[in-house]
Amino acid sequence: MELISLTIKGILLQDDSLQPYLIMQSFEGNRILPLSISASSASQLILQIENAEANHSGYFLSELWNKHHFLLKQLLIIKGRNYPYEGTLHYKKGLRKHRISIPISSGISFAIHQKVPILTDISNTLLLTDYPIYNTNLDWERGNLETIDSFRHDQPFM
């Protein structure tokens, strides 16, 4: 498994369904991971990124984490059993290492709040050169995902 670090590039709405997608991008900038999220999760992440509100799941998880002296190491995004992708928090308590599954949007919110790496296997990501819309004049505020679908990628991401 070859892990790469991700950062949030933006949130897009699919033109026909208005489904929000969180676009995660590799630090090198050549790979993306589009994640389908709910409208409320999209709103929550936008508020958190803009530091507009401390009332988000990452904040509440952080309070609990700090109270019990857990040390979060990373969020790993993996292919899920029940959903296309799931989050796995890797953390320590004393000398013991633990991990726990978490919904993707809550995990990302928590990882942002705790300032820890967000990682995924490189096989989960899409290469930008395969999707010219991301290389040319994509307006991240009004972009669309028409060119990214399960028919153009060997494994569906949704």
Results as ranks from 00 to 15, higher is better:
residue 38 S to W: 00
residue 31 R to Q: 13
residue 129 T to F: 06
residue 102 I to K: 05
residue 98 H to S: 14
residue 59 Y to V: 12
residue 49 I to Q: 06
residue 122 I to M: 05
residue 95 L to N: 13
residue 89 L to A: 10
residue 96 R to P: 07
residue 42 A to T: 02
residue 71 L to S: 14
residue 47 L to H: 11
residue 103 P to E: 07
residue 132 P to G: 00
residue 20 P to V: 15
residue 27 F to E: 15
residue 66 N to Q: 14
residue 22 L to I: 12
residue 112 I to D: 02
residue 121 D to C: 05
residue 46 I to S: 12
residue 124 N to M: 10
residue 51 N to S: 14
residue 113 H to Q: 15
residue 28 E to P: 03
residue 95 L to A: 06
residue 57 S to N: 14
residue 45 L to Y: 07
residue 55 N to H: 13
residue 68 H to T: 06
residue 72 L to T: 10
residue 75 L to N: 08
residue 116 V to E: 01
residue 82 N to W: 02
residue 128 L to E: 07
residue 99 R to P: 04
residue 57 S to A: 10
residue 107 G to V: 05
residue 108 I to P: 04
residue 21 Y to C: 01
residue 91 Y to W: 08
residue 43 S to V: 12
residue 127 L to D: 10
residue 94 G to V: 01
residue 67 K to M: 11
residue 21 Y to K: 06
residue 60 F to G: 05
residue 107 G to C: 07
residue 124 N to P: 04
residue 48 Q to E: 13
residue 67 K to S: 04
residue 48 Q to N: 08
residue 52 A to D: 11
residue 20 P to T: 07
residue 105 S to F: 01
residue 36 S to N: 10
residue 26 S to H: 14
residue 109 S to C: 10
residue 40 S to T: 11
residue 39 A to D: 07
residue 112 I to T: 03
residue 59 Y to C: 12
residue 70 F to T: 06
residue 78 I to P: 02
residue 101 S to Y: 02
residue 105 S to W: 00
residue 115 K to C: 13
residue 108 I to V: 13
residue 117 P to S: 07
residue 26 S to N: 09
residue 66 N to P: 07
residue 62 S to D: 13
residue 28 E to V: 00
residue 30 N to H: 15
residue 118 I to M: 13
residue 137 N to L: 08
residue 29 G to E: 15
residue 84 P to H: 03
residue 36 S to D: 04
residue 59 Y to K: 13
residue 92 K to S: 15
residue 131 Y to T: 00
residue 123 S to H: 15
residue 74 Q to R: 08
residue 116 V to F: 00
residue 58 G to P: 02
